[in-house]
């Protein structure tokens, strides 16, 4: 009896009251319920978000545990340079990384906050640049559209991992090492933004032609209001498909050159170790740890004998990418569901 009583007055309210805001007619409990039902039909979003929260917790706890000392690996002298270090055991659950002489679990944990910040900053910057420029280009059209589209088309023309290093190597000589990573992140965001801007622009073109935008324009809305109120929020969906690929691109740069360097063989390959934005060769970073792990043996095949050295960093990277993918795909579906509901 209480439920109809509670809902009765709400239904009886005058129409103006609806416009007071959503809180007026949707109590928090029903919102939660709606959220719960939406999430129940969307397990990948739940799993993805839970995994991301887990990574975040690992990052924060590492920050607290290492007391801000996050830029140098803790090395165990007894294991430095050992050719056959011990594998996973109780003392070292992920084993020991021989060439660096570090406990692998500790190193991966220590690397978590920095990696989260670096990837988050790169992906966030490039996505927001892409959304802003892309939706503006789609809305404004004309010369602005042509300019933004052409620059995007052009930047998309070079493999991103390669392009960012071309830019970085050009600038590196003018930088001091504390600036390496911030500049690298900025450059990377610049290289990656067109991958967001292009699909966002295409979506914004469609959105700009929708009746509600027309009506808003007819009602005298300025460009800024049109952009931020109507076009931009409705053109962000394509960004989600690109996020995991950004993560891939970021980690690829940090892994591939150290690996090519330790592969040895061809003349000059040792110089590949110079192509890195990391300020020191003992910098805790997932991709770097993975490359070092895959270099454990002295020939590529020999390193297959030390699976823990590369399997655990690879697992962490893949798990992180998986959580981003799941969360992104789930969010996409969640948003699509919301749109369908309205």
């Amino acid at each position: 009896m209480s439920a109809p009583a509670g809902s009765g007055p709400r239904r009886a309210r005058p129409v103006e009251a609806v416009d007071e805001g959503p809180d007026a007619w949707a109590t928090s409990s029903t919102r939660l319920e709606r959220l719960r039902t939406r999430l129940a039909g969307n397990p990948q979003l739940v799993v993805g978000l839970l995994l991301l929260v887990g990574f975040l917790a690992a990052g924060v706890s590492a920050w607290l545990h290492f007391g801000g000392h996050l830029t140098g690996l803790y090395r165990i002298p007894a294991y430095e340079g050992v050719s056959a270090p011990p594998g996973p055991s109780l003392a070292h659950p992920f084993g020991v990384m021989g060439n660096l002489g570090v406990d692998e679990l500790t190193a991966l944990w220590q690397a978590t906050p920095l990696d989260l910040v670096l990837i988050g900053a790169t992906v966030g910057l490039s996505a927001s640049m892409g959304v802003l420029l892309g939706s503006y280009a789609g809305l404004a059209g004309g010369a602005v559209d042509v300019a933004i589209t052409e620059v995007s088309d052009l930047l998309v023309g070079v493999p991103p991992f390669f392009f960012v290093m071309v830019l970085f190597l050009g600038l590196e000589r003018f930088l001091r090492s504390p600036l390496y990573l911030p500049v690298f992140v900025l450059l990377f965001a610049f290289v990656l933004f067109p991958y967001h801007a292009r699909p966002v622009r295409a979506r914004a073109l469609e959105v700009a032609g929708e009746p509600y935008v027309e009506s808003a324009r007819a009602a005298g809305a300025g460009t800024r209001r049109l952009l931020f109120r109507h076009v931009l929020p409705n053109s962000t969906a394509p960004v989600l498909a690109q996020l995991p690929i950004d993560v891939y691109n970021f980690l690829f740069v940090l892994t591939v050159f150290p690996f090519l360097s330790c592969l040895g063989g061809g003349t000059g390959n040792a110089l590949f170790s110079l192509i890195t934005p990391l300020p020191s060769p003992t910098f805790p970073e997932w991709g770097f740890l993975l490359a070092q792990g895959a270099c454990a043996g002295w020939s590529p095949l020999a390193s297959l004998d030390y699976p823990w050295m590369y399997a655990f960093p690879a697992a962490v990277i893949v798990l992180f990418g998986l959580s981003v993918t799941l969360a992104a795909d789930g969010l996409e579906r969640y948003l699509a569901g919301r749109v369908a509901a309205t």
Partner: peptide
């Protein structure tokens, strides 16, 4: 996608 190319190459 996320397993680096070289690791795939090794495996």
């Amino acid at each position: 996608l996320l397993t680096p190319t070289f690791l795939l190459a090794l495996l």
